[in-house]
Amino acid sequence: MFRLTPIRAAIAALVLAALAGWASFGGYLAREMVAEIAVLAILALALDLVAGFGGMVSLAHGAIMGVGAYGYALANQAGLPPWPAALVGMAAATLTGTAIGAVSARLTGVFFLMATLAFGQMIWALTFRADALGGDNGLGGIARPPLPFLDSGDPLVFALYALVLAAGCLAVCVAVLRSRFGQRFEAVHDNPDRAAALGIAPERIRAQGFAISSMIAGAAGVLAAQHMQFVSPELMVWTASGEVLVVLILGGIGSLSGAVIGAAGFVLLKYWAADWTDHWHLAIGALLIVVVLAGERGLSGLLEGRRDA
């Protein structure tokens, strides 16, 4: 069951603060990377909510995030100002997740994984084929949100704005898990038969958890669209979802702080390794296997020490 231990809170706060500091004193590239980390962290948080605490490992989260990004882009193109358009994007992602969750929630384990793979790929294929969505060229010219007294076009302002959003999503996840709903969500994962005997309907709870997670994934999509000012179907392919899963595993699944660390570590490694080798996925693959063999506690598990979570 989720416990926001002081060490977890400290780790997450420290990482976010370090990223803010880095964005402030680093150059243009640092600021772009921090924004990218924030997007990935939010998506990983969304996935951690369902996979880490509900046992629902989803390969549709990239697609759901993409729906959020496209929703924002289309609403914005239709003339809606950025903030209402962001709500449209999140609502679209939530609706998509609600639909996927409603039909997939009765499946478990690998079957659930396959179902989310199928739905995610359906969304990707539809987007890829739809001329109204720009096909595989995607959509460009997406606006960033206006901020009071600040210019969101400035990379530093945007990086900090993205970090604030990531921190906000982390707080939302903590609140969800601490709520009565969160307890039930974890209970249904822990022992569905007992939960049912207590009057808790496992499928409904799982579907609701998936919808909440999709809303957060939608927020990641909106932020991604604002950051790149461009959306393409690439966001939605299942390998994108698989990559987020890797981020989560490397960071440490089921701890929330692991999502943030994993995202930071992954993006940093990507840029750092890209400087001298084209084959950095080799290291990621090996690392993934090592972490899985070591018991899936990832970086955050390493930082927390060997205590029982």
Binding site: G109, V110, L288, L293, E296
Partner: peptide, 14 residues
């Protein structure tokens, strides 16, 4: 099964 999915996914990368 989850360990299998993840570890074999790592093998794909490699």
């Amino acid at each position: 099964p989850m360990q299998q999915v993840l570890a074999s996914f790592g093998l794909v990368f490699i």
